[in-house]
Design a binder for these strands. Structure first.
Length: 854
DNA sequence: CACTTGCATGGGGGA
DNA sequence: CCCCCATGCAAGTGT
């Protein structure tokens, strides 16, 4: 492979390129991707003219015409059709393949090599478009000229690097061109200095006849350089993007090294290849990403930023504005972007490629016109970020609001040529509901979303004018492309935006929901736990996640025994069940196999109204109680472990404090305040802010106390059991009462069959000095558990339990804890301290096996 | 106390 | 493995 010559004019001279295998071709084999420029070729396309590979006839996949591929001329008439062979130029044309002008120029002007950019680096894209004039002159010269005229348009950084310079400009151009191609733009960029315009297909046809024609490439990179058009114009037929064929022509270009990027995202799966036929004609209305052709190495735009605009949109837009519109890039608004901060993070590559260069962090004012003609001035600036930059547009809030955009919507940036004026448009997400979006994406994947692309919801204002895009997605490739991008977008705004949008109450609700869910989890009935015995302690380990079961309530008797109560789904009566009973999510009295006298709904309820009240109150008032944090209420009904811990964490030591803990949106929280126990401040600082073992912050201290308490409880529990056995329950319970305060023995725990867990929960930990140090360095909280207490992620818990507890245990001489596994009598046997502490702590906070798997 | 501003962090994706 | 970028953090500033 190394001997092949890339037919990309800008790259062809490199004969030692490495070639990597690309996606599978329908005709068999795989595409070859130029390692340097990314251009894709069908292996068999290579001919002797350029190298030593397979000269000969090729058959057009469309018309079956045979074309000889043995020379430059013929080669240029071939188009690599997507993943399926080649097609001739005429077929491509008749199939509505649109030619795109690419820049190959035999004399080497076709592609501007980034290295050649040299002084011409800063040529604005628009300017850089070479006229489609065939005068070869020089692109370079043109570039210089342009640069001279508008040197500011390029980033210094770009100028500084070889990729930059023309590359930048070229990138834009390429994007432009490629984009058109990809989307089936009928327009062709005509490189004309000063006033680049989209040329119509007609023009293209003629141009097409020119030997140069970049094949439509699907993905392959159309290695078109923006700057390409130096003298001769290259044309690439692009079948609506649906077809990806590509024909590369080799034209001696004076440059080299330009990286071109695939026009379309590479199919992730081989099976997605699409025949060109299918794609033909589909394109004009397709909303597909138009990749910026230019490759700037690492700075290449990610497909997610590729502008998606249909031919119609573009044309309409251009018509409306009486200008040529050059789609630049687009971005799905993140929660941050659409938030109140008013900062829109710009993709670095985009910012550097299409916005004026900024050398100072303060940036420059940037005027951007919206689709309604209003002009906005934003501060285009950057922040140093690591060794890079992070570009942002500041002051976008008014604009965002005026366009009624929110996270998930897409904001688009285009350029009006001539003039280079920036225009921003937007597309509303089809549905504000993220789920819906996903569905749509799925639909695309399924091929069911034939009508509109996910982003072309009604009312969307795409790259300009709200135009209903009936983009037809034709071809798996497109589907895939779109879907892939969609997926990314969805991911971008998924949990994060959800988190941002979550209000305190919602969050609280969510937490409760989560906790409640925890309550419903049971060890998988069909899965036998693996008993691990370490140091005489046995532990149950489940390989399977817990299953959901019916929510039950556990109560403790003064005698020390436990009871489990479940409510009939039909009559709502509470029934007493064995402690180890596991119920399905739906359960009725008729399924009460443990008490024949109460296996019907007509049977009276055992639970006294008082007990019932307690139980119910636990559920209904829990939130209030949590907020109030009253000791008394804690005693009345200790929340589940997680709740308890969370509550403690939220309320800190001041459990008696009333008033709502601050659980407001974190973004509103001004800053950490010493001693603040709000939901914000109990969060471990992101990033660096991990708690050290020696940390004495509220959270750490709380957790430490918690641990201690748990250990004490365990110890005490064991004692109780022993006492119970020896008929000394009452004594034990006294102790427990002391520990807990005034709790009465009933109903204190919701569905944690684990005896220990119950007891743990029933006790109020006493502030104690933690003997062990708990590492609170926690994994980021799961987003689906937004209010999870920092440091209590599963891994964190495990970690926490591992060392500190061991220490603690050792220090306290607690060497033989008993851990009751869920659903049964305590497994008295031992286990390793590590596991013990693990389980103990996990259980104490209502953790489940499922959680541990995280 | 709220908002602004600038930087830091780290997850995640791409190379 | 590197880098992007979404987001958090907290100092600074305003009300």
């Amino acid at each position: 492979m190394g001997t092949k010559i890339c037919m990309n004019a800008s790259c062809q001279t490199a004969t030692t390129h490495e070639w990597k295998r690309g996606w599978p071709l329908r005709s068999g084999g795989h595409a070859l991707l130029c390692y340097n420029c990314g251009s894709a070729y069908e292996d068999s396309l290579f001919c002797d003219t350029f190298h030593s590979e397979e000269p000969g006839w090729r058959e057009c996949n469309i018309c079956s015409k045979h074309l000889h591929c043995g020379c430059i001329a013929s080669k240029f008439l071939l188009e690599l059709l997507d993943y399926g062979g080649v097609g001739c130029a005429s077929c491509a044309r008749s199939s509505r393949l649109h030619l795109m002008q690419s820049d190959e120029i035999p004399n080497g002007f076709g592609f501007l090599a980034r290295n050649n950019a040299g002084d011409s680096e800063s040529i604005p894209a628009e300017n850089t478009v070479a006229g489609n004039s065939n005068d070869e002159g020089g692109l370079a010269q043109l570039c210089r000229l342009l640069e001279a005229n508008e040197p500011s348009l390029l980033h210094p950084s770009k100028r500084a690097n070889t990729n930059g310079g023309l590359g930048q400009f070229r990138q834009e151009e390429i994007m432009h061109a490629i984009g058109d191609i990809g989307t089936g733009f009928s327009n062709v960029t005509q490189p004309s200095i000063g006033s680049p315009k989209f040329s119509k297909p007609d023009n293209m046809s003629s141009l097409l006849d020119l030997r140069d024609m970049h094949s439509t490439l699907s993905q392959p990179s159309l290695s078109m350089a923006l700057g390409a058009p130096s003298g001769t114009t290259n044309f690439v037929t692009f079948p609506d993007g649906a077809v990806e064929g590509k024909e590369q022509r080799k034209i001696p270009s004076f440059q080299q090294g330009q990286r071109s990027r695939p026009i379309l995202p590479k199919p992730s799966k081989p099976g997605l290849s699409v025949s060109s036929e299918n794609n033909i004609g589909a394109a004009s209305e397709l909303r597909i990403a138009r990749p910026p052709a230019e490759g700037r190495g690492k700075n290449q735009l990610l497909p997610r930023y590729w502008p998606r605009i249909t031919d119609q949109e573009l044309q309409q837009l251009s018509g409306d504005l009486n200008s040529n519109i050059v789609p630049l890039f687009e971005k799905i608004l993140s929660a941050s972007d659409a938030g109140r901060i008013g900062r829109l993070v710009l993709p670095k590559a985009c910012a550097e490629a299409y916005f004026p260069p900024v050398s100072q962090s303060e940036g420059i004012p940037l005027r951007i016109q919206d689709i309604k003609g209003r002009e906005w001035t934003f501060q285009f600036r950057f922040w140093p970020n690591n060794n890079s930059r992070m570009y942002v547009l500041e002051g976008v809030t008014p604009c965002i609001h005026s366009m009624q955009l929110k996270a998930g919507d897409t904001i688009t940036f285009s350029r009006i040529d001539p003039g280079g004026k920036l225009v921003m448009g937007f597309r509303k997400s089809t549905n504000n509901d993220e789920d819906t979006k996903e569905v749509q994406a799925s639909g695309l994947l399924d091929g069911t979303a034939s009508g509109e692309t996910p982003f072309s919801a009604d009312g969307d204002i795409g790259w300009n004018n709200s135009e209903n895009h009936r983009g037809r997605i034709d071809g798996d490739l497109l589907q895939q492309t779109t879907a892939t991008t969609e997926k990314k977008r969805t991911q971008n705004i998924g949990p994060k935006s959800k988190r941002l949008l979550m209000h305190s109450e919602d969050a609280m609700e969510l937490r409760l929901t989560w906790e409640e869910a925890q309550d419903l989890l049971h060890p998988p009935p069909s899965v036998k736990p693996t008993i691990v015995t370490i140091e005489d302690h046995e532990f149950e380990e489940y390989d399977e996640p817990p299953v959901f079961g019916k929510r039950t309530i556990f109560t403790s008797r003064l005698s020390g025994g436990q009871e489990q109560w479940a409510q009939c789904d039909d009559c709502s009566k509470w029934r007493n069940l064995p402690v180890d009973a596991l119920l399905p999510p739906k359960w009725t009295c008729s399924e009460n196999a443990w008490d024949s006298s109460r296996c019907t709904c007509s049977a009276p309820e055992e639970m006294t109204s008082k007990d019932l009240d307690n139980v119910l109150r636990v559920s209904k008032d829990f939130k209030k109680r949590r907020n109030l944090g009253s000791q008394k209420r804690f005693q009345e009904r200790e929340p589940s472990g997680l709740d308890a811990l969370a509550t403690v964490a939220v309320l800190g030591d001041n459990l008696n404090d009333s008033g709502d803990p601050s659980v407001g949106a974190t973004t509103k929280h001004p800053r950490h305040r010493l001693g603040c126990t709000c939901i914000v401040c109990i969060q471990p600082p992101s990033g660096k802010g991990k708690h050290k073992p020696t940390c004495t912050c509220n959270v750490c201290m709380t957790v430490k106390r918690r641990f201690k308490t748990l250990m004490l409880r365990k110890k005490k529990r064991q004692s109780e059991r022993e006492a119970e056995i020896s008929q000394k329950d009452k004594m034990d319970h006294k102790e427990e009462s002391e520990m807990k305060g005034t709790v009465s023995h009933e109903v204190l725990h919701i569905n944690n069959p684990d005896t220990e867990g119950n007891q743990c929960q029933r006790q109020i930990e006493k502030p104690e000095t933690s003997a062990g140090q708990i590492d609170l360095n926690c994994h980021p909280n799961r987003e689906d558990m937004p209010l999870e207490i920092p440091g209590l992620s599963t891994m964190n818990l495990v970690d926490t339990a591992e060392s500190p507890l061991d220490n603690y245990i050792k220090q306290n001489g607690l060497s033989s804890f008993v851990w009751d596994q869920q659903g049964g009598p305590a497994q008295q046997s031992g286990e390793s301290l590590r596991r013990l502490s693990d389980e103990a702590f996990l259980a104490s906070i209502g953790w489940t096996h499922e959680s541990r798997r995280d």
